[in-house]
Each structure stands twice: as structure tokens, then as C-alpha cells.
Design a protein around this nucleic acid. Structure first.
Ligand SMILES: [Zn+2]
Ligand SMILES: [Zn+2]
Ligand SMILES: [Zn+2]
Ligand SMILES: [Zn+2]
Lengths: 160, 160
DNA sequence: ATGCATTTGTTATATCATAACGTTAATCGT
DNA sequence: ACGATTAACGTTATGATATAACAAATGCAT
């Protein structure tokens, strides 16, 4: 709910906090946060933007952590599967989760000027969509919700 | 709002009606509904499912209407641009619009068992997402809303 | 130490999408 | 009707995204 990302915040703490929370959760759930997986997570946490798998792969290659697509995709699969990252379908790109571990249905606000991504919450089965679903006898299991628009910072700027 | 697609309906009329409405709109707006574009539209209208660009291209090729990817993508671009079809981002696939011409913000209910797609309406700026956006000073311009779940027909069946 | 499951490295390939360019066809002002 | 302009098409080539498959290495419980 808190619109981190567009607003300025203690981002170093933001990164460290999420990383620590995820490490704890992996330990607790006996998940292997291996070097590649951890590094991909760090790269995604670096800024509140979505990165393509091949962008990530480039970084990994530079650091000697892997050079072939499956390396990046496997790490991303792990992170997404366990809710530590999300895929932005419109962009074929990935973003670190802003509420790791909290069991949530993510929705995204994506600025088309600065590419910043903010994670918000949604309740897929509620609202108009929920009504339509009910009417159709459709059981919603999950939903992709990705809003595109302009963030506060970019709206203020002189550029159109 | 009406959950056509899962429920049985006069589908021949459904196709004919949408096609007629779109033809009229093209005439009125001086848009060229060329043979390829029209055929792609017909293929999409055939059933309330999403088709990949290459599935459509295969059909076109069989009918001698074009054999290379740009043929399909250009027709789809036209249809999407003018609101006669929509892209389902999660599936990299396309579906005919259920409310052509009506100027609407589409949302989709997608059955993971039978692949049926129902188009519903959404008001992106309302509800929880709207609240989050307002809080963040974010201006929503459009939104991808794609719910996955199980439709009435598939829920009733014996198969899990 | 042994056996089993998970992860990694690598090659190859599948799938989705567009750039570029010359040709053809529709549109429009004259 | 005519030529200029714009829009659509056919084709080749390539780019971008994603996965299959399998052998080697590692982690982990007994
Ligand atoms: Zn931050
Ligand atoms: Zn999240
Ligand atoms: Zn129908
Ligand atoms: Zn529609």
C-alpha cells in the first residue's frame, strides 16, 4: 500500500531490509539462496525498476556468475516461485517484490516515462472484476494487474 | 459486463453482429478493412479464445493470404490499435473484442482449463488500485487486468 | 561413504516480434 | 483522368524472449 519507489526513501535500508527478510525466510523454509539466486535478487533490489532476463544475464556474465540464458531464467523462476520477485507481463521483465514473504496479490503502477515500478496490493475477486466473475460463475485464482501511467516526479517535470 | 463466452449463446449471431458493427465503424472512420485484416478478425471472432500470432499466420498461410510473420502482426496491430481486438499479455495472444467500438477499458477472465476468454469492463482508476495510485500521486492512463481461474463449465466437470 | 534430490553448465532450439526495403494499391487534390 | 501522396503488402533478415535436454557438480540425509 505504501507507494515506495516514486517517493524518496532510505533505499539502502530498503535493499538491506528486504534482503535480510528474504534470507531469513529461505533459512526458515530450507530454500537454497545460492550465489546466483542471491545476486539476481540483489540486482533486482538495486532499483525499483523492471529488468529483462537478458539485462540480468549481462550483469551476471560481467561478474562471472553465468553466461547462458537458463542461468538467469532459473534464478528468476526461483525468485518468482517463492514470491521474492514478480514478472511484469506487459514488459517481459522482472521486479523485486516489495513485500517479500507477506503472501499478497500484487498489482503494479508503472511509469511510462521513468520506468519506475511501484507494487501495490489488489484483491482480485473484489470490485467490478469480481462482480463480473461472480455473474459468469468464474472463480478467480489470480490476476495480473499492471497499470501504466505517469508518476508524480515525471508529471511535474517540464518535458511532456 | 455480460459474461458471454462461458455461457451458451447465439454465437453465429455474435460473430455476424460484431463483424457488421466493425465493418460499419471502419466505413464511417475511413479505415481500410482489407482482406487480410478482415480474415484475421473473422478467425479471432470464431471462438472466444486467444490465439497466438503464429497460429493465425498458419491459418492465413493455408488460405493463401500471407505466409510471413509481419502479415499477421500488421493485421493484429491494426485490429488492436482500433479496438477491434485485444492482446492478452500473459499469453502473448490475441482475442477479438467483445464490445467493439464502445470505447472501453477491457479486463479479462481466462479459464486455465478450457482457455476460454471473457471480456469484462474495468475502471482502472477506481478501487484499491486507484487509491494506491492517488496516494502515490500516480496518474493511471491504462491498465492490463487479466484474471486467471476456472470457469463454470470447467468447475462442474469431473476432472480436477 | 552412499544414495538421492537439487542445482549448475552448456548446447541447441523453440517461440514471439520487428526492422528494413522495394512494390503495389488506395486516396486525394487538381 | 492525372500525378502526387499516403497506406498497405510481400519478403528477407534479424532481434528478443524463453525453454528442452542432458551431463556434471553439489547439497544433504542416512
Ligand atoms: Zn527502495
Ligand atoms: Zn510482491
Ligand atoms: Zn460468441
Ligand atoms: Zn474490448
Amino acid at each position: 500500500m505504501d507507494p515506495i519507489g516514486f517517493s524518496s526513501h532510505d533505499h539502502a535500508g530498503c535493499i538491506a531490509g528486504n534482503l535480510a527478510r528474504i534470507e531469513a525466510r529461505c533459512k526458515q523454509a530450507k530454500l537454497q539462496l545460492t550465489p546466483v539466486r542471491r545476486r539476481v535478487l540483489e540486482i533486482l533490489l538495486q532499483d525499483h525498476r523492471a529488468l529483462g532476463a537478458y539485462d540480468i544475464l549481462d550483469r551476471l556474465r560481467d561478474e562471472g556468475l553465468g553466461s547462458q540464458p537458463p542461468v538467469a531464467y532459473r534464478a528468476l523462476d526461483f525468485l518468482v516461485k517463492h514470491g521474492f520477485a514478480h514478472k511484469i507481463e506487459r514488459m517481459n521483465a522482472f521486479v523485486a517484490c516489495a513485500h517479500p514473504g507477506e503472501d499478497h496479490a500484487p498489482a503494479f503502477l508503472i511509469c511510462r516515462k521513468c520506468d519506475m515500478v511501484v507494487e501495490a496490493q489488489t484483491e482480485p475477486a473484489r470490485g467490478q472484476l469480481g462482480s463480473s466473475a461472480k455473474l459468469a460463475g468464474f472463480l478467480i485464482e489470480r490476476a495480473v494487474v499492471e497499470a501504466e501511467g505517469v508518476c508524480l516526479n515525471c508529471a511535474e517535470g517540464p518535458q511532456s
